[in-house]
Design a protein around this nucleic acid. Structure first.
Lengths: 223, 223
DNA sequence: GTCTTCGACCACCAGAATGCGCATGCACCG
DNA sequence: CGGTGCATGCGCATTCTGGTGGTCGAAGAC
């Protein structure tokens, strides 16, 4: 984890940086807004600690510029205890949190931990199988980068197959997971959907295992 | 967006709730830890404001129980100004942020905004989707720079969709976040509002995913 | 061992039926 | 009087059904 500390008070900066290093982080330091902005723009940080009152360029502007440029790393602002309007401005500019000066170093550490923990929670939910990508969160599928237009049952089928990649999935298993409760088993709906799905996918990834069911698998695997 | 306020001081609770409602949120109230915990456990909130000192069950315990049960919604803690050790404990228990009492309501609002937009993965106070802009700070929306005149429910709908851009949002999910507690789910209200919103937007950004729900997305997205 | 035959299983088609989503209009409430 | 909630009916995408023809595999005949 790499952290940037932007603070013009040399003493305070060192104090923070030392505590962070002691907690196992890698720390870079900056002492004015421009230097801080440049570093945050070019280096990949997991979190930034940013004073609001800085020489050359103030903290709010720095955050705004980062956000406008698409930088999304968590930013912890340091503000004067009584300037609550600054806090509101900072937060609305895109800061994720702030601590009022004077603060306990302990507290800053806890907040940095929280920020990093929270930022880590945004992993996208994607399953990939050969050229096929499935985004479960967006309910979208694509082949070779081209979005597929699937109906909800087709999507559920693909989803179940991809969640059990490599396994043979029986027809009854599919029925039970695609429909609620009782469903007439004596019909070939599943086969029909497999057929439609195969056609839409274009690629031949759904293997049929005669007498057992279907299996989805990346093509280049030997077994 | 639906918010839970857990605060035993009746006056303060009402003050917060009123301010939140005025900002366009749907608000539920609780006045002790147990009631708060139960509500947060059973209803889907987009954020929770939680006092740390509560009757029956204290705030820290409430958060811990939620987190242990897998509840991940953002929690904003209210603490006494000088009990900084409480803050550290609260954050490590899983709270996302805190505000020290006494606070400016303005500040709480800013932090709630920040929490919600961060939970959705956005870093600045403006969310943009194609020609549509949503200003969470000012509660305003515009298309191609022209301000939209939306009713409060229309705005809430648009807001929720844009906070979950790219995701398919089910009708029940929308109902749960746009209304408080009891609401007749067997009606086509959502469909009607989607229709009205589409008409006002003019652009066709709200895609309907048959059988699943709705999805908001910039049209030119390839993945 | 190889070929043939037979039965089971599966893919595909196209029409039929379902039910979802939308627009419209009206009632209610502040 | 605008904002909101609900009922009706229509259109159509989606799903289901039944039938037909094809494919695979096993078992028996040679």
């Amino acid at each position: 984890m790499r952290i940037l500390v932007v603070e013009d008070d040399v003493n305070l900066n060192r104090q923070l940086s030392d505590a962070l290093k002691e907690s196992g982080y890698v720390v870079d330091q900056a002492f004015d807004g421009e230097e801080g902005h440049y570093l945050g723009d070019t280096e990949p940080y997991d979190a930034v600690i940013l004073d609001i009152g800085l020489p050359v360029m103030d903290g709010i502007t720095v955050v705004e510029k980062w956000r406008a440029g698409g930088k999304g790393m968590p930013v912890l602002m340091l503000t004067a205890r009584d300037r609550w309007s600054d806090k509101v401005a900072g937060i609305d500019a895109g800061a994720d949190d702030y601590v009022a000066k004077p603060f306990h170093v302990e507290e800053v550490l806890a907040r940095v931990r929280a920020l990093i923990r929270r930022a880590a929670g945004h992993s996208s939910s994607e399953i990939v199988c050969g050229p096929v990508r499935l985004d479960t969160k967006a309910s979208k599928a694509s082949v070779e980068g081209v979005a597929l237009k699937l109906t909800s049952h087709e999507f559920r089928l693909l989803s179940y197959l991809m969640h059990h990649m490599g396994q043979v999935v029986s027809r009854t298993e599919l029925v039970e997971h695609m429909y609620d409760q009782d469903f007439d088993r004596d019909s070939n709906t599943i086969e029909v959907f497999v057929g439609r799905l195969r056609k839409k996918l274009g690629v031949d990834l759904i293997e049929t295992v005669r007498g057992l069911g279907y299996r989805m698998q990346a093509p280049n695997d030997a077994r």
